[in-house]
Design a protein around this nucleic acid. Structure first.
Lengths: 358, 358
DNA sequence: GGATTTTACTAAATCGTATTACTAAATCGT
DNA sequence: ACGATTTAGTAATACGATTTAGTAAAATCC
């Protein structure tokens, strides 16, 4: 008898009957239950000002029915309508490292607080994967992108915040360490212990911190009268995120003249590899050679010897990154936001450094 | 003149004019460009069998127009229509640990391969947060849930796969280690080195592996004639994911009689803490006491001494978990899937264990 | 050469929600 | 007591896709 099968009352009745497997209760179902229109129900459940004229009694009826039916608004439908997904995309080199995990924990904490979720995609330092993953994330309608230790070259119509990124792209907010202060802390510590001849392990070229870190260290060394001879400089090779790369770099270092008294590693992971190499060649850490790391990952404190290191506030950098990304997302496109946020390093003195004796 | 403002041709013309900031090109825009209906365009771009009757020339025209306009289908709209989000939810204790990160890297690899993304939510072992996060994920329309080291008590209308979970809930697929084999490997290794008196560090009560692991170890010890006296058993306390808990547990252990010759720790993290405590009290590892860990996290190999450990294939467990979850999602609800997948441990011998001398 | 099938499409419904634009009845102001 | 406002809602449209149902015209069949 109905011209077009628009309502399917019998079907929904049937579904209401079975109790255990309740699923997709829609706004329409709630509306049908209280014999009002979906409009009214929507307006009431969203506390819209449009509901001002609806008497409290009716509101209560609607709210109770929604609760009884266990109504959960469909996020997808709502996203489509509102053009908001409350989701952001996170680009990282890889999931396995202490570094990414620490930053991510800060990101997650902040985002969940604000009702956001995030997609993670890792690219293993491959430019093609960075590009592809970015497109995937955009296709998924993320509202912004957080790039962790990941180079960003192009500007985008989406807000982007980069953590430990060093490209200065218009519109991209950077969260960076105060590298000068970090280098100063490391060199000053070694200098105070009497070290004047220091070797350094540079990061891989693909790591965004590599260049600043070695430049600031060389500069700080020059100013303090600490010598870093050219063949005391070695570099991590390959994208293995384990201490292996630091171990190999240090072996290369040791095959040259070895009259340095300290090694300043690119990060804690490579410092741990360096310690292994030094011990293997019969040198004691810290008695013969001091080693200083970077980051202060969880493993650093309990390594043997416990690692002296320059701490980066990784978790905080994550939450700051998330915070600024959300600000960028919500801000009026007209007004601009601070483009570089600097966080401060700390010197954490443990057992891998000691005074020069010889 | 138009009765209802249905098309807004002038506006879209204006938008087409500016080049840099192209955004939301919709199916309608493509349709308008080729002067065909959205239906036809959709059908062609999706390689639907319905497009069989469309001549190749027209198809080419449509595909080219889509490319030129840089058309990207709106994922949200498509999700709403198809009732598919290609997104799963992952529950983890916390983001910071080597354990979660390793499993997640396996999860991610598998999911991205299959065109899925995932939301992560961590609960810090708090039951209320497990509950809340699960609801958030369901509200976000995830197609399934992957619970990593997270207790699951209720069954759900969503597919669930649990990694290292030990509740046997109907409909939940478990990915578990062969704990008997693991215990056997550990005890046999110690036994072969001459150890007959062994201390163990149990995990926290909230860790899902705690109970099986200690039970299987006690059983394996009994069978091999290895003694584990009651006051050689200690337990991790508190939810700090650092080696600190293992350190403190070992200190408690050392305050009793200490005539054991080996310590079998709950995991690598706590083994590292144990080594610290042993050394502090003047005992050498492995000369006085052997230490064996569990998991083989990245830090294990480069610790000093390098950690002998029972490896869990964490990354593989992650990718297996993802794989079975996807199978559960795509399978016919009628037929059932294997409910328990077992993975095998490996003994990794390094420097933290050695033969008994005394 | 008329009926049937194939070709090449399009209109309309749908997914579940939010919003804009209405309407009918009750109340208010004067 | 009559027009203006408030109250209590509803119908229609939009978000951007996919799919079902349909329709003209051309090609094929008998």
């Amino acid at each position: 008898m109905p011209k077009k099968h628009k309502n399917k009352a019998p079907a929904s009745d049937a579904r209401a009957a079975d109790s255990a497997v309740q699923k997709n209760v829609s706004l329409k179902d709630v509306a049908a239950a209280v014999k009002l229109s979906p409009t009214t129900v929507s307006v009431v459940l969203n506390y819209s000002p449009l509901a001002d004229s609806i008497p409290q009694e009716t509101k209560d009826r609607i709210i109770e029915a929604a609760r009884n039916l266990n109504y959960r608004p469909n996020y997808i439908a709502r996203s489509l309508r509102n053009q908001r997904t409350h989701t952001i995309g996170v680009l990282i080199p890889e999931m396995s490292e202490g570094y990414s995990a620490a930053v991510l924990s800060g990101v997650e904490e902040k985002l969940l607080q604000e009702g956001y979720f995030y997609f993670v995609a890792s690219h293993h330092h491959r430019p093609d994967l960075i590009e592809r993953n970015t497109q995937f994330l955009v296709a998924r309608c993320v509202e912004g992108i957080l790039a962790i230790d990941t180079p960003i070259h192009q500007q985008s119509f989406l807000p982007i915040v980069s953590i430990s990124g060093h490209d200065h792209v218009k519109g991209v907010t950077n969260i960076v360490l105060n590298h000068e202060a970090a280098a100063q802390l490391a060199i000053a510590h070694l200098h105070a212990l009497g070290h004047r001849k220091v070797a350094i392990i540079k990061g891989q070229d693909f790591s965004s911190d590599t260049e600043v870190r070695s430049n600031t260290i060389l500069e700080a060394a020059r100013q303090s009268g600490v010598e870093i001879r050219d063949n005391w400089i070695t570099q991590l090779i390959g994208d293995d995120p384990s201490p292996e790369t630091g171990y190999l770099a240090t072996r290369r270092l040791l095959s040259n003249e070895t009259d340095f008294t300290a090694v300043l590693a690119f990060n804690d992971i490579s410092a741990i590899g360096a310690i292994r190499a030094l011990r293997e060649s019969g040198l004691s850490v810290p008695d013969d050679v001091s080693v200083i790391g970077f980051d202060d990952i969880t493993a650093a404190e309990f390594h043997n010897p416990a690692l002296t290191t320059i701490r980066q506030p990784l978790k905080k950098m994550g939450s700051l990154g998330a915070e600024y990304l959300l600000l960028n997302i919500h801000k009026n496109p007209a007004d601009t936001l601070s483009v570089e946020i600097t966080v401060e390093p700390d010197l954490i003195v443990r057992q891998s450094t000691s005074a020069v004796t010889k």
